[in-house]
Design a protein around this nucleic acid. Structure first.
Lengths: 170, 170
DNA sequence: CACAACTAAGTTGTGCACAATGAGATATGG
DNA sequence: CCATATCTCATTGTGCACAACTTAGTTGTG
């Protein structure tokens, strides 16, 4: 896939020779597609690493948030991860069924549900400690590049979201 | 949430002052999560931009591949996009139902199915030309950074995939 | 107080991703 | 030749994402 693949009838390689062109249907998606591919590759690695913990990557993200700060509302988890209740509600039910969290309606505001780690959920943190080093090793980037990349990603997401929210421009 | 919250047993705030530290549960995911967020933000923008074309982002990617090179096998599309038939088969059926592609079994090898653009599918390219400029504007990165980022993403995906394929290391 | 506006969470429906499995076609070795 | 392995695609099942909608609770106003 990184080389130009031949179909059975023609060779139209060499399309990538137009570096200044950011508006073509060829080049446009090379960054977006690269990002999309990299994101899927990382999720795939997490799938392998998280299999012993019986967690998916989004579930692991929720656990990370809770390990940092227990007993949050669904709304707060959503704000932390940019996920809405349509994604979180079923995910949290699965975590509850796995015995890692509890879900209880708040007495003071019956609309909201507070998510708390169970003892098992809190204990799982120890096993999770083994994961970050693998991720670091897998990415194989030196810390400076890594830090810069994180900043760039944050800015990129912010910029893209701003653009989208003010769309259409008219 | 953007301030440092304490866990229930240690205070590991200020970890971002430890650039060599790639192994904590706090820091690890800041890059992976940033990537995941950026990828979703971009997909979300594509959703907005692609709505008039009645395409999803993965469908658009398939169309991009076909616009570059028509009449490919499912297997070839899969190689180009790193997607398997479990994802592509239903997606291609939806594109067929939309009238953008045709799917026909090859006579010379009854196992394979060749995907071809219809006239409508080929014509849609003109409308798609309007999309890349929006993406470029939304990302707001200068071309040099953009090119570097693309290279980094490719290397990252490759590195992560290599690591995952040779896992467990034993 | 009544009632509209708002909010938090859940539900429904669509469409990826991906593992696992299966069916049918083709290639290969004995 | 024929048994078996391999290949290509499709199917099934699970779990995100996300839009659109619903339900129930809360708040603000006249």
């Amino acid at each position: 896939m990184m080389e130009c693949y031949r179909s059975d009838r023609e060779e139209e390689c060499m399309t990538s020779q137009d570096p200044g062109e950011t508006g073509s249907l060829l080049l446009d998606d090379q960054l977006c597609f690269g990002l999309y591919s990299a994101s899927r590759a990382i999720t795939s690695l997490y799938r392998t690493l998280l299999e012993p913990l019986d967690l998916t990557y989004p579930q692991y993200l929720v656990m990370l948030v809770l390990w940092e700060h227990d007993a949050q509302q669904v709304k707060e988890l959503g704000a932390a991860l940019n996920l809405d209740s349509g994604t979180l509600s079923p995910l949290l039910k699965r975590l509850e069924k796995s015995g890692l969290v509890t879900r209880e309606r708040q007495a003071e505001d019956e609309r909201s549900v507070r998510i708390r780690l169970t003892d098992d959920g809190a204990a799982l943190r120890a096993k999770a400690e083994e994961i970050p080093p693998h991720i670091g090793a897998a990415m194989g980037l030196d810390p400076a590049v890594l830090t810069g990349l994180r900043t760039t990603m944050d800015r990129l997401a912010a910029s893209v979201n701003t653009y989208r929210e003010s769309f259409p421009p008219a």
